[in-house]
């Protein structure tokens, strides 16, 4: 997994790169937007980490322009800007997520991993969250290598939760993903699938990973 860090503060960029490298992500650094464009010309990246206040232009403008020019990997926006609305503007301009400075490396790494799990041409073949793994192609799930028996719907739910591991997946989103428009969804249908999946996970030895956020949705999170 290769990450391009676009950040003008040399020390900050270097320390961020080192921190992410310790967490198993290889990083390149571009200290100007022009250098970032050059890097994108010559190499393939899985993720961009973009600081907004760059010396040679506005990061959001650059992102918008680059998105029009080529297929960009997901972009995580790193900003010291504090205007609350800037975050929204960043997401509108094609940023996939944002982290506000001062950030914590663990938090940054978690967001990076979440973005890398998103489906796409460069997405990893096998999803992994803690001891849990899922192969979207074969629809096979396993805990620490031991296969889990899952129904089609349970597998779909697991994939959805794993792709967004570490964030709460809203109940409505689960309903939309698991059932087609013409299917009638009984009020407890989602709860039933979730509790079946939770039982399967517990049987497989991955208890304490699937959490209910009552009134909101469900959260799959590595307990470690």
């Amino acid at each position: 997994m290769r990450v391009l860090i676009i950040e003008d503060n040399a020390r900050l960029a270097r320390l961020t790169a080192e921190g992410l490298q310790r967490r198993g992500l290889s990083c390149d650094i571009a200290q100007t937007l022009a250098l970032a464009s050059d890097s994108l010309d010559v190499a393939l990246f899985d993720l961009l980490i973009l600081d907004l206040g760059m010396p040679d232009g506005d990061g959001l403008e650059w992102l918008r322009a680059e998105r029009r020019r080529r297929d960009l990997p997901p972009a995580l926006i790193l900003t010291a800007r504090d205007a609350l609305e800037d975050r929204v503007a960043g997401l509108d301009a094609g940023g996939d997520d944002y982290v506000v400075k001062p950030f914590d490396l663990d938090e940054l790494a978690a967001r990076v991993r979440a973005l890398l799990r998103r489906p796409g041409p460069r997405a990893p073949a096998i999803l992994e969250v803690g001891a849990l793994s899922f192969d979207p192609g074969s629809r096979m799930a396993a805990v620490a290598g031991n296969a889990l028996e899952l129904s089609r719907r349970e597998a779909n739910l697991l994939e959805l939760l794993m792709r967004r591991a570490g964030t709460v997946v809203r109940r409505e989103a689960i309903e939309d993903a698991l059932y087609s428009f013409d299917e009638t969804v009984t009020p407890n249908a989602v709860e039933a699938v979730v509790s079946r999946l939770r039982r399967r996970l517990a049987e497989g030895g991955a208890a304490d990973m699937l959490h209910t956020v009552r009134g909101v949705g469900y959260l799959l999170q590595d307990p470690a």
Partner: peptide, 22 residues
């Protein structure tokens, strides 16, 4: 409420606490 609770829930869960919305 659901949005903010959803955003804070991962942190809460990692600290062995839950958030619910009624």
């Amino acid at each position: 409420a659901a949005d903010v609770a959803g955003r804070l829930a991962p942190l809460a869960v990692s600290q062995d606490r839950l958030i619910a919305v009624e």
